[in-house]
Design a protein around this nucleic acid. Structure first.
Length: 1119
RNA sequence: GGGCGGGUAGCUCAGUUGGCUAGAGCAUUCGCUUUACAUGCGAAGGGUCCCGGGUUCGAGUCCCGGCCUGCCCACCA
């Protein structure tokens, strides 16, 4: 019961099929549920999607390759994915049919933080256990099981969607092959000085205790306050105070008094008691970080700055002495604003002109600190970057804070509690000047929703700011898509890389997003404090100076063999923060037990962190093809894969990951495939610079002449994002994600695909209102009815054509013709108007479909085929040939060619229904028509490997199109009259055409294959007469300037209906005449518009006026 | 704050270099169970092309300004 009993063709017949024409019947509606499983199975068995690199390398076929954007294994796919993959499949299938050796590489992404978070949540819900209740290995096993589950679901979804991926090559970003690529890439970047260890402020999630990327955060507005805190002013730290106050430790610098400041000309100083301790007031939203202050910042134009020269501030309770530094970043208070703009700065409202600079806890302060580093370090008793927090954001002196002083009471408190305590303490001591309510925007973590702490921590970075990275990404763009500025800057460096200028975005506007990102890029933090991901292959330990030489000796051979690289004390000049004391060893091969045993034995520890997910994603175009070892896995099938298919043809994705993913793939592909990198590979082990010579020699950098390699793809197609009915992006977290399988169940795969393709316009977003069926609990949308109806239309048109084409042959000479093939008989070129017209429409259809695909205009591709199938082929051609096709072998040939062309053109978007039709169509005997190249299937007799239709330009026929258009107008005019007079469809009426209207008669009497003419057929005419109608039951209408009549509409024509019809006609014509007159009375129009347009306008006016006169006359005759 | 989109029929959207009376699908109305298809056929109604200026013989389309809306990036624009 699962399969249609009508289908008798085995899915994959090894020999010419045994197909009996006599049992030919098909259900009257297309049933996707019957066809899809059978066809999927046929594809699975014949493996028509398995790409053969040998055909590319031998020059036998050109490559066409798409890498799937690997879906995250966190959840099942939704309609956004369905769109994404449908478009890829259309490209893959079309190019496969066009003869390209096509590889669509499937796979999934491990999605580090997202997956781990989902599993942590699940484990908590099910077992009430946290990650740390398990060993690392045990927890990873749990995630692995989860991943297996969703990877299976995703693969299943892609298969039911009909995706023609090369399933034998499916990858996962954490499988062995991808892991090997990750390690090799890491190793090379490490060796080449493009990976470094640094202390940086990262977005820290104190709850998950991990760094998160900017895009893993959200912003929210919270109600908080500006706190105004006073810091005492002091003299030089060298000038000791003789009478230390209270219990401050040791000696302190001499305090500055308001009296002194008054003498220095400090504005407003004499408002205070002369002998009293002078202070400055900082404004801050984060009092708790004051413990880590490194300096006080002032605007260089602040009038108070000069009076404070030679003074410092002392950090209350801590006792740290801080310098006052001038920097433009500091906002002047509103009262001191020097311009409208400064006064309008919202910060000016709250500013005091004194900024506490806390580099370890604020990004802006961090930047300011590095601008003024020398000045601050020289003048402070602190140590610059002072981190006062533990990873859980509690106050701690274990992570870089040494001069705790009298602030020990805050240790161990949470950041929230610390704020309260500090404010209270300042207040108690009289150092709190006040507070002001403030709405602050803060970042929160996507996952835990806790407030992000800018946190100074040790992280690994990829130096993407290096010209070898960011710059080569931009130079990959085609010239037309590069900004003028960028193009100029290229003039200076003519060392063109292999892939320079070969990558385009579609639509082109996205090139600007891409370029701009690289112009402003920051180094990429790649370490994540997670368990789920690629472990960082670096082993580290503290080394004493004396040990270094010994270790280098021990490691020397391995360094020479490039099984490891190392950097350590003093080895990395690019590291922004000194990492003196640590030796880092990067191990190339994770299975290198000899080395790892040695490292363990000598006190090295492997970095516990894993790599950012995007690191492995960035390698996707390489790792999936077996880089760096093209023959390492399944040597038979993978050999030469990289050479054959990288660079690929196109990447299809959504705009949101242009920066996250596209950019990084381009940088990595170009760097890792640079000719320098290739040379080094072949040199390995022979001439690597000696490891013991110097630390910098341990990190050989590619020569300056190394030319960047190709980009990973030549085209980047950015498609629209599917939103729900309320304009929200479809996503699992919003709960509005619709499973494509729900749509497939209700409408069928092809219907879903066709509708999505129709929606793939050039815009940013498309809305898809979806409703939940309360009965089934599944989502659906009437939007997909359009696709379902379309597939059904195709099915029925095919059913009709197949019935005709398979009919017992009788009078037809087809009976003697062989099966389709080289020896099939040829049909003479059709001479009938409708056939010539159909062939011309097919030619245009192929041309337009190809153009749309070439330009990634998927909606146009769908629309072209919709019109070709429904409007041209079904509405006009099939309806028009019904009376004649049975007796005309030539017309049968046209019918067959038309259907086959359409089926082939549609296969990429509706693969199942076309393949189901193909099962029958491919056995049909037809006479061959000149001008058609419909090459046979290459594998298993399946349509998916049959040739793309190639139609000769000779099929294009302007005359036929023009004449047919006239015919259509006439038919439509008659139908209009019929509808208005409610003439029953079956009633045959008579058309009266004056004998003088030769042009009209010529189309009416155009050559026909026997039977009645087209007008008779399509307008429901009994006959056409040149005689005038009898008085009475007839209606006149005008066509091409002649008065024509229809008679026998009814026993008596209703005068009221006719009157209404004429009145409307008169109104329309009057409006048209007014428009035309206005235009033609405009002297400028006559003088400047193209003469052709003017002539057309005049002709239209004349025609409209004549028609108007006639209509008025008729109306007068009625009353 | 910057950048990029969108605003056209009740709904979802087309509209290529400025030029026929601005189109399609769905929905609505009327008529058709015509032997491929009622998931269909024929026909109809329905639009201040967001607003205001400008260029032009002519603007949905080009330019300027504004309003609404979405996305992306943010000391770097």
């Amino acid at each position: 019961a699962s399969q249609s009993p009508m289908i008798t063709t085995p899915p994959n017949p090894p020999n010419p099929p045994t197909h009996s024409p006599s049992d030919f019947t098909l259900p009257s509606a297309y049933r996707p549920g019957d066809a899809e499983p059978r066809i999927t199975q046929a594809w699975d068995e014949a493996k028509p999607f398995h790409a053969d690199p040998a055909r590319v390398l031998s020059g036998e076929a050109k490559p066409y390759c798409i890498f799937i954007p690997p879906p995250n294994v966190t959840a099942a796919l939704h309609l956004g994915h369905a769109l994404n993959n449908t478009l890829q499949d259309i490209l893959a299938r079309a190019h496969r049919m066009m003869g390209f050796e096509t590889l669509w590489m499937p796979g999934t992404d491990h999605a580090g933080i997202a997956t781990q978070a989902v599993v942590e949540k699940r484990v908590w819900n099910e077992e009430r256990k946290r990650r740390h209740d398990f060993t690392r290995e045990a927890f990873i096993d749990k995630i692995q099981a989860f991943k297996d589950e969703y990877e299976k679901t995703i693969t299943e979804q892609l298969k039911v969607m009909g995706c023609s991926c090369d399933w034998d090559r499916q990858r996962f970003t954490m499988d062995d092959q991808c892991a090997a690529a990750v390690r090799e890439a890491f190793f090379r970047l490490f060796r080449d000085g493009l990976i470094y260890r640094g202390k940086r402020l990262v977005n820290w999630d104190p709850e998950l205790r991990t760094a998160v990327a900017d895009d893993e955060t959200d912003e929210i507005e919270i109600d908080t306050a500006f706190y105004y805190m006073r810091y005492p002013l002091v003299h030089s730290p060298d000038e000791q105070d003789e009478s230390p106050t209270s219990g401050q430790r040791g000696s302190r610098p001499r305090r500055a008094t308001w009296g002194e400041l008054a003498l220095r000309g400090y504005p407003g100083a004499n408002r205070n008691t002369p002998g009293e301790q002078a202070w400055v007031t900082v404004a801050t939203t984060r009092p708790e970080t004051y413990l880590g202050d490194a300096a006080i910042g002032m605007n260089p134009h602040d009038p108070r700055l000069k009076a404070l020269e030679g003074l410092w501030v002392e950090l209350p309770f801590v006792g740290r002495i801080l310098p006052i530094v001038a920097d433009d970043y500091v906002v002047l208070p509103k009262a001191m604003a020097r311009s409208e703009e400064e006064a309008n700065d919202p910060k000016a409202e709250y500013a005091t002109g004194f900024l506490k600079v806390t580099p370890a806890h604020d990004q802006n302060d961090y930047d300011l600190y590095f601008r003024r580093k020398e000045q601050i370090d020289r003048n402070s008793t602190g140590t610059g970057l002072i981190n006062v927090m533990a990873p859980d954001a509690s106050i701690s002196d274990k992570f870089g804070w040494t001069d705790v002083g009298d602030a020990g009471l805050f240790l161990g408190l949470s950041r929230e509690e610390t704020r309260k305590q500090i404010v209270a303490k300042f207040k108690a001591e009289g150092w709190l000047e006040g507070t002001k309510p403030y709405k602050q925007t803060v970042k929160i973590s996507d996952r835990s929703k806790s407030i992000i702490e800018p946190y100074l921590s040790d992280q690994w970075f990829v130096k993407v700011t290096d010209p070898r990275m960011a710059q080569t990404a931009n130079t990959a763009l085609v010239k037309e898509q590069r900004s003028a500025e960028q193009q100029r800057s290229r003039v200076s460096d003519e060392g063109q890389g292999a892939g320079d200028g070969s990558m385009s975005f579609h639509p082109a506007r996205y090139a600007r997003t891409f370029e701009h990102w690289h112009d402003n890029i920051r180094d990429w933090c790649i370490s994540r404090q997670l368990w789920w991901g690629h472990r960082i292959p670096v082993w580290s330990r503290d080394v004493h100076v004396g040990e270094i030489e010994f270790l280098r000796e021990e490691l020397g051979d391995w360094l020479k063999q490039t099984r490891i690289v190392a950097f350590g004390p003093g080895g990395h000049t690019d590291t922004p923060v000194d990492c003196r004391g640590l030796l880092h060893v990067c191990v190339r091969d994770s299975g290198d037990d000899q080395i790892t045993e040695f490292l363990k034995a000598h006190g090295f520890h492997q970095d516990p962190d894993v790599l950012d997910t995007w690191f492995s994603s960035a390698l996707w175009p390489l790792s999936t093809l077996g880089w760096p070892e093209p023959t390492a896995f399944n040597a038979e099938s993978n050999k030469g894969l990289l050479e054959a298919f990288n660079p690929s043809s196109v990447l299809c994705t959504a705009r949101e990951i242009i920066t996250l993913w596209v950019s990084r793939m381009v940088m990595f592909n170009r760097y890792l495939r640079s000719d320098g990198a290739t040379e080094r590979r072949s040199d390995e082990g022979k001439d690597t610079p000696s490891a013991s010579s110097s630390s910098s020699a341990q990190c050989p950098v590619p020569s300056a002449s190394a030319r960047p390699g190709p980009p990973p793809f030549h085209n980047v197609f950015i498609h629209a994002v599917i939103q729900d009915g309320d304009g929200r992006k479809m996503s699992k977290s919003l709960g509005n994600g619709v499973d494509p399988r729900d749509i497939i169940e209700s409408h069928g795969t092809d219907a879903m695909r066709f509708t999505l393709t129709q929606m793939a316009t050039n815009t940013q977003d498309v809305r898809l209102p979806v409703v939940l069926d309360p009965k089934t609990g599944k989502n659906s949308s009437t939007k997909f009815d359009a696709g379902r109806n379309f597939c059904n239309k195709l099915w029925n048109a095919s059913r009709f054509a197949l019935t005709i084409l398979r009919r017992p042959l009788g009078t037809s000479p087809l009976g003697t013709s062989p099966l389709r093939g080289e020896t099939a008989s040829r049909s003479d070129a059709p001479t009938q108007l409708i056939d010539r017209w159909m062939l011309s429409r097919l030619h245009a259809g192929v041309r337009d479909a190809e153009a749309a695909l070439a330009n990634y205009e998927f909606a146009n591709y769908a629309q072209t085929l919709y019109d070709l199938l429904w409007r041209d082929f079904c509405d006009w051609y099939i309806e028009g040939i019904k009376p004649t096709v049975d007796s005309s072998p030539r017309q049968r040939a046209v019918l067959a060619h038309a259907l086959e062309t359409i089926v082939r053109l549609l296969h990429p978007v509706t693969p199942f229904v076309t393949e189901a039709i193909w099962e029958h169509l491919r056995h049909v005997e037809i006479d061959r028509l000149d001008g058609f190249d419909l090459s046979p299937s290459r594998k298993g007799g399946l349509l998916c490997t049959a040739g793309w239709p190639r139609l000769a330009d000779s099929l294009h026929d302007d005359d036929a199109e023009r004449e047919f258009e006239r015919l259509r107008s006439l038919i439509t005019a008659i139908r209009e009259v019929r509808a208005q007079h409610n003439v029953h469809d079956k009633r045959k009426i008579t058309l009266h055409t004056p004998a003088a209207a030769a042009a009209i008669l010529s189309i009416i009497n155009a050559p026909s294959a026997g039977g009645g003419g087209l007008v008779q057929t399509l307008a429901g005419l009994e006959s056409v007469s040149t005689a005038a109608p009898e008085e009475g039951s007839c209606v006149s209408f005008r066509f091409e300037g002649h008065e024509l009549f229809l008679s026998n509409l009814a026993d008596a024509v209703d005068a009221g209906t006719e009157k209404a019809r004429l009145e409307k006609l008169i109104a329309d014509l009057t409006k048209s005449i007014t428009t035309m007159n206005g235009r033609l009375n405009n002297a400028g129009y006559i003088a400047k518009a193209p003469p052709k347009l003017v002539e057309e306008s005049k002709a239209q006016l004349a025609k409209a006026e004549a028609d108007l006169d006639a209509a008025r006359a008729q109306l007068a005759g009625l009353s």
